[in-house]
Design a protein around this nucleic acid. Structure first.
Lengths: 138, 138
DNA sequence: CGGAGCTAGTTGACATGTCATCAAAGTGTA
DNA sequence: TACACTTTGATGACATGTCAACTAGCTCCG
């Protein structure tokens, strides 16, 4: 299910908006942050990405004008990732079609009960894994 | 759920056996084929991989002695992918721990009803997407 | 037969991801 | 303060994935 679904969704995303999964995930994560800006490390953690991977991706998206970097006002080491106007327009333009894809290929294929069950399943697994990660980090 | 689960499973797989997801998937797919051999393209289709990606991966695994290439007896263009003894031993050694990881982080976190529900969900989505792919290929 | 068009698999160039390392800046403690 | 230690983010080398040719062998039909 995961393999097929990922293939179909990323194919449609690329066709309709020209974005890769990585592009879209970054844009949508930043756009969900208040003021369209978020601390670099917080973004990496939220996306479950390594800082290295995110740094490379941000560099590429910066070159395309979708994202900007700013200095962190309080922490001299810090970088703040900011959505540009171009990036904001792009994610707004891309989102409806992508949401429709997800609805069409996943949501609409399931009953109301199944959607609810899937939510519960995800919640259980995520709770377990969050604990797991914490204990390992000790 | 997917992100966390993938991270945890591939981390444990790498720690316990030294294999990447890609390595493991290839080994297990080939080992499930009769006589431990399978036509190149059939393997690519089964794994939902492009032939190019598979070709590169097989090349690397061949260099490590896990996999062999043979000529197809009937089709002069064909390549048959074969598990070596080394590959067979490696996947046999790696499988139990990986299966245990999946059980621990997914199966054991769910009730019997949830496991069944997840199966039905996957079946529904896969059926839909299989049809989808067929119609697009026309 | 023979040639047009298809399919199989490989290859190289380029895009992306991972890993180890580094410099700069923060934190804690004597 | 001063020093060891941690955290942050960037970077370069290398591993892996994607895409567009390309060769070789199949198939079909005149």
């Amino acid at each position: 299910m995961r393999g097929l679904l990922d293939l179909q969704l990323s194919r449609e995303l690329a066709e309709e908006s020209g974005f890769s999964d990585a592009d879209y995930d970054v844009l949508s994560s930043v756009s969900e942050s208040s003021d369209h800006r978020i601390r670099f490390t917080d973004l990496a953690r939220r996306m479950l990405w390594s800082r290295s991977r995110l740094s490379h991706q941000i560099t590429r998206m910066q070159q395309r004008g979708l994202i900007d970097r700013e200095e962190h006002p309080a922490d001299g080491r810090g970088t703040v990732v900011v959505l540009t106007d171009l990036g904001w327009n792009a994610i707004q333009a891309a989102a409806p079609a992508h949401v429709a894809s997800v609805r069409r290929h996943l949501i609409d294929q399931l009953s109301r009960q199944q959607i609810e069950a899937l939510g519960d399943i995800a919640e259980a697994v995520v709770r377990h894994l969050s604990v797991e990660c914490d204990t390992e980090r000790r």
